[in-house]
Design a protein around this nucleic acid. Structure first.
Lengths: 237, 237
DNA sequence: GAGTGGTCTAGACCACCAA
DNA sequence: TGGTGGTCTAGACCACTCC
Protein backbone atom coordinates (compact mmCIF):
# COMPACT_ATOMS: atom_id res chain seq x y z
CA UNK A 1 0.00 0.00 0.00
CA UNK A 2 2.97 2.29 0.68
CA UNK A 3 5.40 3.59 -1.91
CA UNK A 4 8.64 4.09 -0.03
CA UNK A 5 10.66 3.91 -3.25
CA UNK A 6 8.19 4.27 -6.14
CA UNK A 7 8.37 1.57 -8.75
CA UNK A 8 10.16 2.32 -11.97
CA UNK A 9 6.93 1.81 -13.90
CA UNK A 10 5.10 4.31 -11.73
CA UNK A 11 7.83 6.88 -12.14
CA UNK A 12 7.76 6.56 -15.92
CA UNK A 13 3.99 6.85 -15.98
CA UNK A 14 4.07 9.99 -13.89
CA UNK A 15 6.77 11.58 -16.00
CA UNK A 16 4.91 10.95 -19.25
CA UNK A 17 1.64 11.98 -17.67
CA UNK A 18 3.08 15.29 -16.61
CA UNK A 19 4.41 15.96 -20.09
CA UNK A 20 0.99 15.25 -21.54
CA UNK A 21 -0.86 17.39 -19.02
CA UNK A 22 1.41 20.32 -19.66
CA UNK A 23 0.74 20.03 -23.35
CA UNK A 24 4.30 19.20 -24.35
CA UNK A 25 2.86 16.12 -25.98
CA UNK A 26 -0.36 16.77 -27.82
CA UNK A 27 -3.17 14.55 -29.05
CA UNK A 28 -2.11 12.44 -32.01
CA UNK A 29 1.57 13.19 -31.43
CA UNK A 30 3.85 10.18 -31.78
CA UNK A 31 6.10 9.19 -28.90
CA UNK A 32 9.80 8.48 -29.46
CA UNK A 33 10.83 4.90 -30.16
CA UNK A 34 10.62 2.43 -27.29
CA UNK A 35 14.37 1.96 -27.26
CA UNK A 36 14.94 5.69 -27.04
CA UNK A 37 12.42 6.05 -24.25
CA UNK A 38 13.97 3.17 -22.32
CA UNK A 39 17.29 5.00 -22.60
CA UNK A 40 15.73 8.23 -21.41
CA UNK A 41 14.36 6.53 -18.33
CA UNK A 42 17.42 4.33 -17.86
CA UNK A 43 15.47 1.10 -17.91
CA UNK A 44 14.74 -1.87 -20.14
CA UNK A 45 12.26 -2.07 -22.95
CA UNK A 46 10.15 -4.57 -21.02
CA UNK A 47 9.74 -2.19 -18.11
CA UNK A 48 9.12 0.77 -20.34
CA UNK A 49 6.48 -1.15 -22.26
CA UNK A 50 4.70 -2.03 -19.07
CA UNK A 51 4.46 1.65 -18.26
CA UNK A 52 3.06 2.37 -21.72
CA UNK A 53 0.54 -0.46 -21.38
CA UNK A 54 -0.67 1.07 -18.11
CA UNK A 55 -1.05 4.48 -19.69
CA UNK A 56 -2.89 2.76 -22.53
CA UNK A 57 -5.26 1.17 -20.02
CA UNK A 58 -5.94 4.61 -18.58
CA UNK A 59 -6.58 5.99 -22.03
CA UNK A 60 -3.69 8.47 -22.13
CA UNK A 61 -1.80 6.85 -24.97
CA UNK A 62 -2.67 4.32 -27.64
CA UNK A 63 -0.76 2.34 -30.18
CA UNK A 64 -1.11 1.39 -33.79
CA UNK A 65 0.19 -2.05 -34.61
CA UNK A 66 3.86 -1.81 -35.53
CA UNK A 67 3.65 1.95 -35.96
CA UNK A 68 4.29 3.13 -32.45
CA UNK A 69 2.69 4.93 -29.54
CA UNK A 70 0.60 8.08 -29.76
CA UNK A 71 -1.09 10.53 -27.44
CA UNK A 72 -4.80 9.82 -27.14
CA UNK A 73 -7.34 12.41 -28.24
CA UNK A 74 -10.39 13.11 -26.02
CA UNK A 75 -13.12 10.48 -25.86
CA UNK A 76 -16.19 10.74 -28.05
CA UNK A 77 -19.33 11.16 -26.00
CA UNK A 78 -21.79 8.47 -27.06
CA UNK A 79 -25.26 9.41 -25.88
CA UNK A 80 -27.49 6.34 -25.63
CA UNK A 81 -30.57 8.53 -25.48
CA UNK A 82 -29.83 10.40 -28.67
CA UNK A 83 -31.14 8.77 -31.82
CA UNK A 84 -28.35 10.09 -34.03
CA UNK A 85 -25.87 8.05 -36.04
CA UNK A 86 -22.10 7.99 -35.97
CA UNK A 87 -21.37 10.82 -38.38
CA UNK A 88 -23.87 13.19 -36.81
CA UNK A 89 -22.57 12.42 -33.33
CA UNK A 90 -18.95 12.96 -34.30
CA UNK A 91 -19.59 16.14 -36.24
CA UNK A 92 -21.71 17.58 -33.46
CA UNK A 93 -18.61 17.32 -31.31
CA UNK A 94 -16.51 19.24 -33.78
CA UNK A 95 -14.62 16.26 -35.08
CA UNK A 96 -14.16 14.51 -38.38
CA UNK A 97 -15.90 11.17 -39.09
CA UNK A 98 -15.01 8.62 -41.71
CA UNK A 99 -16.55 5.24 -42.56
CA UNK A 100 -15.08 2.47 -44.67
CA UNK A 101 -17.03 -0.50 -45.99
CA UNK A 102 -15.14 -3.75 -45.44
CA UNK A 103 -17.63 -6.33 -46.65
CA UNK A 104 -21.32 -6.87 -47.36
CA UNK A 105 -22.89 -10.24 -48.00
CA UNK A 106 -25.76 -12.58 -47.27
CA UNK A 107 -24.65 -15.36 -44.93
CA UNK A 108 -25.87 -17.73 -42.22
CA UNK A 109 -26.11 -15.85 -38.93
CA UNK A 110 -24.19 -16.85 -35.84
CA UNK A 111 -26.14 -18.30 -32.94
CA UNK A 112 -25.85 -15.03 -31.01
CA UNK A 113 -27.15 -12.99 -33.92
CA UNK A 114 -30.06 -15.37 -34.47
CA UNK A 115 -30.91 -14.92 -30.81
CA UNK A 116 -30.80 -11.13 -31.02
CA UNK A 117 -32.91 -11.02 -34.16
CA UNK A 118 -35.32 -13.71 -33.00
CA UNK A 119 -34.61 -15.90 -36.04
CA UNK A 120 -34.41 -19.66 -36.38
CA UNK A 121 -30.91 -21.19 -36.14
CA UNK A 122 -28.82 -20.89 -39.30
CA UNK A 123 -31.13 -18.28 -40.82
CA UNK A 124 -29.50 -16.20 -43.49
CA UNK A 125 -29.01 -12.51 -42.81
CA UNK A 126 -27.34 -9.58 -44.51
CA UNK A 127 -24.05 -8.85 -42.79
CA UNK A 128 -22.22 -5.58 -43.33
CA UNK A 129 -18.79 -4.95 -41.82
CA UNK A 130 -17.34 -1.51 -41.56
CA UNK A 131 -14.68 0.40 -39.75
CA UNK A 132 -14.85 3.97 -38.66
CA UNK A 133 -12.42 6.75 -37.87
CA UNK A 134 -12.51 9.90 -35.83
CA UNK A 135 -10.06 12.55 -37.03
CA UNK A 136 -8.34 9.85 -39.01
CA UNK A 137 -7.88 7.47 -36.08
CA UNK A 138 -9.41 4.00 -36.35
CA UNK A 139 -11.76 3.64 -33.40
CA UNK A 140 -14.63 1.32 -34.27
CA UNK A 141 -15.20 -1.98 -36.01
CA UNK A 142 -18.86 -2.76 -36.46
CA UNK A 143 -20.88 -5.64 -37.88
CA UNK A 144 -24.47 -4.92 -38.89
CA UNK A 145 -26.72 -7.95 -39.19
CA UNK A 146 -30.04 -7.26 -40.91
CA UNK A 147 -33.16 -9.36 -40.89
CA UNK A 148 -33.62 -9.93 -44.64
CA UNK A 149 -37.40 -9.95 -44.30
CA UNK A 150 -37.27 -6.17 -43.98
CA UNK A 151 -34.65 -5.50 -46.64
CA UNK A 152 -35.35 -7.11 -50.01
CA UNK A 153 -32.53 -6.61 -52.53
CA UNK A 154 -30.40 -4.89 -49.95
CA UNK A 155 -27.09 -5.63 -51.64
CA UNK A 156 -28.23 -3.79 -54.79
CA UNK A 157 -28.03 -0.46 -53.00
CA UNK A 158 -25.17 1.85 -52.19
CA UNK A 159 -23.96 0.69 -48.78
CA UNK A 160 -21.36 3.39 -48.30
CA UNK A 161 -24.03 5.89 -47.28
CA UNK A 162 -25.31 5.99 -43.68
CA UNK A 163 -27.58 3.01 -43.11
CA UNK A 164 -30.22 5.06 -41.35
CA UNK A 165 -30.68 7.08 -44.52
CA UNK A 166 -30.88 3.94 -46.62
CA UNK A 167 -33.45 2.52 -44.23
CA UNK A 168 -35.59 5.62 -44.40
CA UNK A 169 -35.27 6.33 -48.10
CA UNK A 170 -35.42 2.84 -49.61
CA UNK A 171 -37.46 0.94 -47.08
CA UNK A 172 -39.39 3.53 -45.13
CA UNK A 173 -38.07 2.15 -41.86
CA UNK A 174 -37.29 4.29 -38.82
CA UNK A 175 -35.83 3.23 -35.52
CA UNK A 176 -38.09 2.82 -32.51
CA UNK A 177 -36.85 1.15 -29.36
CA UNK A 178 -33.16 0.35 -29.05
CA UNK A 179 -31.60 -2.07 -26.61
CA UNK A 180 -27.94 -1.82 -25.61
CA UNK A 181 -25.59 -4.32 -24.05
CA UNK A 182 -22.19 -3.00 -23.05
CA UNK A 183 -19.20 -4.93 -21.73
CA UNK A 184 -15.48 -4.25 -21.54
CA UNK A 185 -13.55 -7.04 -23.23
CA UNK A 186 -10.54 -7.70 -25.40
CA UNK A 187 -10.85 -7.09 -29.12
CA UNK A 188 -11.21 -10.30 -31.10
CA UNK A 189 -8.98 -11.21 -34.01
CA UNK A 190 -11.27 -9.67 -36.64
CA UNK A 191 -11.83 -6.40 -34.84
CA UNK A 192 -8.17 -6.11 -33.86
CA UNK A 193 -7.02 -6.63 -37.43
CA UNK A 194 -9.53 -4.14 -38.81
CA UNK A 195 -8.51 -1.52 -36.26
CA UNK A 196 -4.81 -2.31 -36.63
CA UNK A 197 -4.31 -2.96 -32.97
CA UNK A 198 -2.52 -5.91 -31.46
CA UNK A 199 -4.88 -8.80 -30.83
CA UNK A 200 -6.06 -8.97 -27.26
CA UNK A 201 -5.86 -5.27 -26.51
CA UNK A 202 -8.67 -3.85 -24.41
CA UNK A 203 -11.88 -2.78 -26.08
CA UNK A 204 -15.51 -2.02 -25.46
CA UNK A 205 -18.16 -4.24 -26.97
CA UNK A 206 -21.58 -2.70 -27.58
CA UNK A 207 -24.49 -4.73 -28.92
CA UNK A 208 -27.40 -2.70 -30.29
CA UNK A 209 -30.68 -4.39 -31.06
CA UNK A 210 -32.86 -2.05 -33.09
CA UNK A 211 -36.63 -2.18 -33.45
CA UNK A 212 -38.85 -0.25 -35.79
CA UNK A 213 -41.74 1.95 -34.73
CA UNK A 214 -43.95 -1.12 -34.52
CA UNK A 215 -41.59 -2.87 -32.09
CA UNK A 216 -40.23 -5.47 -34.51
CA UNK A 217 -36.54 -6.29 -34.42
CA UNK A 218 -35.08 -5.20 -37.72
CA UNK A 219 -31.35 -5.48 -37.20
CA UNK A 220 -28.57 -5.65 -34.66
CA UNK A 221 -25.12 -4.08 -34.52
CA UNK A 222 -22.04 -5.57 -32.92
CA UNK A 223 -19.73 -2.67 -32.18
CA UNK A 224 -16.12 -3.06 -31.08
CA UNK A 225 -14.56 0.19 -29.91
CA UNK A 226 -11.07 1.05 -28.89
CA UNK A 227 -11.60 1.21 -25.17
CA UNK A 228 -10.25 4.72 -24.83
CA UNK A 229 -12.22 6.20 -27.71
CA UNK A 230 -15.59 6.69 -26.05
CA UNK A 231 -17.51 7.62 -22.94
CA UNK A 232 -21.13 6.51 -22.77
CA UNK A 233 -23.78 8.85 -21.48
CA UNK A 234 -27.34 7.92 -20.61
CA UNK A 235 -30.23 9.40 -18.67
CA UNK A 236 -33.06 7.39 -17.15
CA UNK A 237 -36.19 8.14 -15.25
CA UNK B 1 -2.62 -11.29 -40.43
CA UNK B 2 -1.66 -14.94 -41.01
CA UNK B 3 -0.69 -17.40 -38.27
CA UNK B 4 1.63 -19.82 -39.99
CA UNK B 5 3.14 -20.83 -36.65
CA UNK B 6 0.84 -19.51 -33.91
CA UNK B 7 2.48 -17.41 -31.24
CA UNK B 8 3.30 -19.05 -27.97
CA UNK B 9 0.98 -16.62 -26.18
CA UNK B 10 -1.89 -17.52 -28.48
CA UNK B 11 -1.32 -21.23 -27.98
CA UNK B 12 -1.36 -20.86 -24.20
CA UNK B 13 -4.53 -18.79 -24.32
CA UNK B 14 -6.28 -21.37 -26.46
CA UNK B 15 -5.21 -24.24 -24.24
CA UNK B 16 -6.45 -22.54 -21.07
CA UNK B 17 -9.60 -21.38 -22.83
CA UNK B 18 -10.43 -24.89 -23.86
CA UNK B 19 -9.95 -26.19 -20.33
CA UNK B 20 -12.28 -23.51 -19.04
CA UNK B 21 -14.93 -24.13 -21.68
CA UNK B 22 -14.95 -27.83 -20.97
CA UNK B 23 -15.48 -27.12 -17.32
CA UNK B 24 -12.21 -28.62 -16.13
CA UNK B 25 -11.54 -25.27 -14.53
CA UNK B 26 -14.59 -23.79 -12.87
CA UNK B 27 -15.52 -20.29 -11.74
CA UNK B 28 -13.53 -19.23 -8.70
CA UNK B 29 -11.04 -22.08 -9.10
CA UNK B 30 -7.42 -21.08 -8.59
CA UNK B 31 -4.92 -21.72 -11.34
CA UNK B 32 -1.57 -23.40 -10.61
CA UNK B 33 1.41 -21.19 -9.80
CA UNK B 34 2.89 -19.16 -12.63
CA UNK B 35 6.14 -21.08 -12.48
CA UNK B 36 4.33 -24.37 -12.74
CA UNK B 37 2.24 -23.17 -15.65
CA UNK B 38 5.30 -21.88 -17.45
CA UNK B 39 6.80 -25.34 -17.05
CA UNK B 40 3.65 -26.95 -18.36
CA UNK B 41 3.75 -24.82 -21.48
CA UNK B 42 7.53 -24.97 -21.77
CA UNK B 43 7.96 -21.22 -21.78
CA UNK B 44 9.10 -18.38 -19.54
CA UNK B 45 7.12 -16.65 -16.85
CA UNK B 46 7.08 -13.44 -18.83
CA UNK B 47 5.43 -15.12 -21.79
CA UNK B 48 3.03 -17.05 -19.62
CA UNK B 49 2.03 -13.87 -17.80
CA UNK B 50 1.31 -12.14 -21.07
CA UNK B 51 -1.09 -14.93 -21.94
CA UNK B 52 -2.80 -14.58 -18.57
CA UNK B 53 -3.05 -10.82 -18.98
CA UNK B 54 -4.78 -11.34 -22.33
CA UNK B 55 -7.23 -13.78 -20.81
CA UNK B 56 -7.77 -11.24 -18.05
CA UNK B 57 -8.56 -8.59 -20.65
CA UNK B 58 -11.13 -10.91 -22.17
CA UNK B 59 -12.64 -11.56 -18.77
CA UNK B 60 -11.89 -15.29 -18.58
CA UNK B 61 -9.52 -15.12 -15.62
CA UNK B 62 -8.79 -12.53 -12.95
CA UNK B 63 -6.20 -12.10 -10.28
CA UNK B 64 -6.06 -11.07 -6.69
CA UNK B 65 -2.97 -9.14 -5.73
CA UNK B 66 -0.27 -11.54 -4.61
CA UNK B 67 -2.74 -14.39 -4.28
CA UNK B 68 -2.79 -15.77 -7.78
CA UNK B 69 -5.02 -16.27 -10.78
CA UNK B 70 -8.61 -17.47 -10.72
CA UNK B 71 -11.33 -18.40 -13.18
CA UNK B 72 -13.82 -15.57 -13.64
CA UNK B 73 -17.48 -16.04 -12.72
CA UNK B 74 -20.20 -14.78 -15.10
CA UNK B 75 -20.75 -11.04 -15.34
CA UNK B 76 -23.42 -9.31 -13.33
CA UNK B 77 -26.07 -7.74 -15.53
CA UNK B 78 -26.40 -4.10 -14.56
CA UNK B 79 -29.67 -2.73 -15.90
CA UNK B 80 -29.53 1.05 -16.21
CA UNK B 81 -33.31 1.22 -16.55
CA UNK B 82 -34.03 -0.66 -13.35
CA UNK B 83 -34.18 1.47 -10.25
CA UNK B 84 -32.91 -1.23 -7.93
CA UNK B 85 -29.82 -1.10 -5.76
CA UNK B 86 -26.79 -3.37 -5.65
CA UNK B 87 -28.07 -6.01 -3.25
CA UNK B 88 -31.42 -6.39 -4.98
CA UNK B 89 -29.75 -6.63 -8.38
CA UNK B 90 -27.27 -9.27 -7.25
CA UNK B 91 -29.82 -11.35 -5.40
CA UNK B 92 -32.24 -11.23 -8.30
CA UNK B 93 -29.53 -12.96 -10.30
CA UNK B 94 -29.17 -15.72 -7.76
CA UNK B 95 -25.90 -14.52 -6.29
CA UNK B 96 -24.64 -13.35 -2.97
CA UNK B 97 -24.01 -9.64 -2.30
CA UNK B 98 -21.87 -8.10 0.43
CA UNK B 99 -21.06 -4.48 1.24
CA UNK B 100 -18.29 -3.15 3.46
CA UNK B 101 -18.09 0.41 4.72
CA UNK B 102 -14.57 1.81 4.32
CA UNK B 103 -15.02 5.39 5.45
CA UNK B 104 -17.61 8.11 5.98
CA UNK B 105 -16.81 11.75 6.58
CA UNK B 106 -17.61 15.34 5.75
CA UNK B 107 -14.92 16.81 3.51
CA UNK B 108 -14.31 19.38 0.76
CA UNK B 109 -15.50 17.99 -2.54
CA UNK B 110 -13.21 17.54 -5.52
CA UNK B 111 -13.74 19.82 -8.49
CA UNK B 112 -15.41 17.02 -10.45
CA UNK B 113 -17.83 16.25 -7.63
CA UNK B 114 -18.70 19.95 -7.20
CA UNK B 115 -19.49 20.02 -10.89
CA UNK B 116 -21.73 16.97 -10.74
CA UNK B 117 -23.59 18.25 -7.70
CA UNK B 118 -23.78 21.83 -8.94
CA UNK B 119 -22.03 23.18 -5.85
CA UNK B 120 -19.58 26.04 -5.45
CA UNK B 121 -15.88 25.09 -5.50
CA UNK B 122 -14.55 23.61 -2.25
CA UNK B 123 -18.04 23.01 -0.87
CA UNK B 124 -18.16 20.43 1.86
CA UNK B 125 -20.00 17.20 1.13
CA UNK B 126 -20.55 13.89 2.87
CA UNK B 127 -18.33 11.26 1.32
CA UNK B 128 -18.93 7.57 1.90
CA UNK B 129 -16.54 4.93 0.55
CA UNK B 130 -17.49 1.31 0.32
CA UNK B 131 -16.47 -1.84 -1.39
CA UNK B 132 -18.76 -4.60 -2.55
CA UNK B 133 -18.50 -8.29 -3.26
CA UNK B 134 -20.40 -10.78 -5.36
CA UNK B 135 -20.13 -14.33 -4.09
CA UNK B 136 -17.21 -13.23 -1.97
CA UNK B 137 -15.26 -11.69 -4.83
CA UNK B 138 -14.36 -8.00 -4.59
CA UNK B 139 -15.85 -6.33 -7.65
CA UNK B 140 -16.74 -2.72 -6.89
CA UNK B 141 -15.24 0.28 -5.12
CA UNK B 142 -17.68 3.15 -4.85
CA UNK B 143 -17.58 6.68 -3.48
CA UNK B 144 -20.89 8.34 -2.66
CA UNK B 145 -20.83 12.10 -2.44
CA UNK B 146 -23.95 13.65 -0.87
CA UNK B 147 -25.11 17.22 -1.03
CA UNK B 148 -25.31 18.03 2.70
CA UNK B 149 -28.26 20.36 2.19
CA UNK B 150 -30.45 17.29 1.83
CA UNK B 151 -28.91 15.19 4.60
CA UNK B 152 -28.65 16.96 7.96
CA UNK B 153 -26.85 14.88 10.61
CA UNK B 154 -26.10 12.16 8.10
CA UNK B 155 -23.13 10.75 9.96
CA UNK B 156 -25.27 10.05 13.02
CA UNK B 157 -27.07 7.28 11.19
CA UNK B 158 -26.23 3.69 10.49
CA UNK B 159 -24.40 3.80 7.16
CA UNK B 160 -23.99 0.05 6.78
CA UNK B 161 -27.58 -0.30 5.60
CA UNK B 162 -28.48 0.32 1.94
CA UNK B 163 -28.40 4.05 1.29
CA UNK B 164 -31.66 4.02 -0.62
CA UNK B 165 -33.42 2.77 2.50
CA UNK B 166 -31.76 5.42 4.63
CA UNK B 167 -32.78 8.08 2.14
CA UNK B 168 -36.38 6.95 2.16
CA UNK B 169 -36.74 6.27 5.88
CA UNK B 170 -34.79 9.14 7.41
CA UNK B 171 -35.10 11.85 4.82
CA UNK B 172 -38.13 10.96 2.76
CA UNK B 173 -36.08 11.16 -0.43
CA UNK B 174 -36.63 8.95 -3.45
CA UNK B 175 -34.68 8.84 -6.67
CA UNK B 176 -36.07 10.46 -9.78
CA UNK B 177 -33.92 10.98 -12.86
CA UNK B 178 -30.51 9.33 -12.97
CA UNK B 179 -27.69 10.24 -15.31
CA UNK B 180 -24.90 7.78 -16.12
CA UNK B 181 -21.45 8.29 -17.54
CA UNK B 182 -19.52 5.15 -18.39
CA UNK B 183 -15.92 4.82 -19.52
CA UNK B 184 -13.39 1.99 -19.55
CA UNK B 185 -10.24 3.05 -17.72
CA UNK B 186 -7.57 1.75 -15.38
CA UNK B 187 -8.36 1.54 -11.70
CA UNK B 188 -6.77 4.33 -9.70
CA UNK B 189 -4.61 3.75 -6.66
CA UNK B 190 -7.49 3.96 -4.18
CA UNK B 191 -9.84 1.68 -6.06
CA UNK B 192 -7.08 -0.80 -6.85
CA UNK B 193 -6.02 -1.04 -3.22
CA UNK B 194 -9.60 -1.44 -2.00
CA UNK B 195 -10.26 -4.18 -4.55
CA UNK B 196 -6.88 -5.82 -3.97
CA UNK B 197 -5.90 -5.67 -7.60
CA UNK B 198 -2.61 -4.45 -8.96
CA UNK B 199 -2.69 -0.73 -9.67
CA UNK B 200 -3.36 0.05 -13.28
CA UNK B 201 -5.42 -3.01 -14.06
CA UNK B 202 -8.40 -2.45 -16.33
CA UNK B 203 -11.66 -1.29 -14.86
CA UNK B 204 -14.96 0.32 -15.69
CA UNK B 205 -15.78 3.72 -14.27
CA UNK B 206 -19.44 4.62 -13.86
CA UNK B 207 -20.56 8.02 -12.62
CA UNK B 208 -24.16 8.22 -11.42
CA UNK B 209 -25.74 11.59 -10.79
CA UNK B 210 -29.00 11.12 -8.89
CA UNK B 211 -31.90 13.53 -8.72
CA UNK B 212 -34.95 13.43 -6.52
CA UNK B 213 -38.54 13.45 -7.74
CA UNK B 214 -38.37 17.24 -8.02
CA UNK B 215 -35.33 17.12 -10.29
CA UNK B 216 -32.78 18.37 -7.77
CA UNK B 217 -29.35 16.75 -7.69
CA UNK B 218 -29.03 15.06 -4.31
CA UNK B 219 -25.89 12.97 -4.66
CA UNK B 220 -23.48 11.34 -7.07
CA UNK B 221 -21.71 8.00 -7.06
CA UNK B 222 -18.30 7.25 -8.50
CA UNK B 223 -18.21 3.54 -9.16
CA UNK B 224 -15.08 1.60 -10.08
CA UNK B 225 -15.78 -1.94 -11.22
CA UNK B 226 -13.50 -4.78 -12.07
CA UNK B 227 -13.83 -4.63 -15.84
CA UNK B 228 -14.90 -8.25 -16.15
CA UNK B 229 -17.51 -8.17 -13.40
CA UNK B 230 -20.39 -6.50 -15.23
CA UNK B 231 -22.32 -6.12 -18.44
CA UNK B 232 -24.48 -3.03 -18.77
CA UNK B 233 -27.96 -3.28 -20.22
CA UNK B 234 -30.16 -0.36 -21.24
CA UNK B 235 -33.25 0.21 -23.34
CA UNK B 236 -34.17 3.52 -24.95
CA UNK B 237 -36.99 4.87 -27.01
C1' DG C 1 18.03 -1.15 -45.80
C1' DA C 2 17.69 0.94 -41.28
C1' DG C 3 14.96 1.21 -37.61
C1' DT C 4 10.82 -0.05 -35.26
C1' DG C 5 7.62 -2.68 -32.61
C1' DG C 6 6.29 -7.67 -31.51
C1' DT C 7 7.85 -11.52 -29.34
C1' DC C 8 10.67 -14.44 -26.54
C1' DT C 9 14.62 -16.22 -23.47
C1' DA C 10 16.83 -17.03 -18.94
C1' DG C 11 17.63 -15.59 -15.40
C1' DA C 12 17.33 -12.35 -10.67
C1' DC C 13 15.67 -10.09 -6.13
C1' DC C 14 12.04 -8.67 -3.09
C1' DA C 15 7.68 -8.45 -0.44
C1' DC C 16 4.07 -10.80 0.84
C1' DC C 17 0.82 -14.92 1.76
C1' DA C 18 0.15 -19.19 3.59
C1' DA C 19 1.60 -23.01 6.20
C1' DT D 1 9.81 -20.32 6.30
C1' DG D 2 9.03 -21.71 1.71
C1' DG D 3 6.71 -20.60 -2.22
C1' DT D 4 4.22 -17.13 -4.60
C1' DG D 5 3.40 -13.18 -7.37
C1' DG D 6 5.43 -8.41 -8.48
C1' DT D 7 9.13 -6.36 -10.53
C1' DC D 8 13.26 -5.82 -13.15
C1' DT D 9 17.59 -6.88 -16.03
C1' DA D 10 20.07 -7.66 -20.46
C1' DG D 11 19.98 -9.37 -23.96
C1' DA D 12 17.99 -11.78 -28.77
C1' DC D 13 15.50 -12.58 -33.41
C1' DC D 14 11.84 -11.56 -36.61
C1' DA D 15 8.38 -9.03 -39.38
C1' DC D 16 7.02 -5.09 -40.63
C1' DT D 17 7.16 0.25 -41.61
C1' DC D 18 9.14 3.86 -43.51
C1' DC D 19 12.62 6.05 -45.97
Amino acid sequence: MRDSAPRAVTAICQALEEQIEHGLLQAGHKLPAERKLSDVFATTRITLREALVQLEARGLVYREERRGWFISPPRLRYDLNARSHFHAMVQAQGRNAHTELLSAQAQPASAAVCGHLGLAPLSRVFSICRRRRIDGRLVLYVEHHLNPAFFPELLEHDLSQPLTELYARQYGIEYGQVRFEVAPTALGAQAAAALKVSAGSPGLRIVRVNRDRQGQVIDCDLEYWRHDAIALVATHG
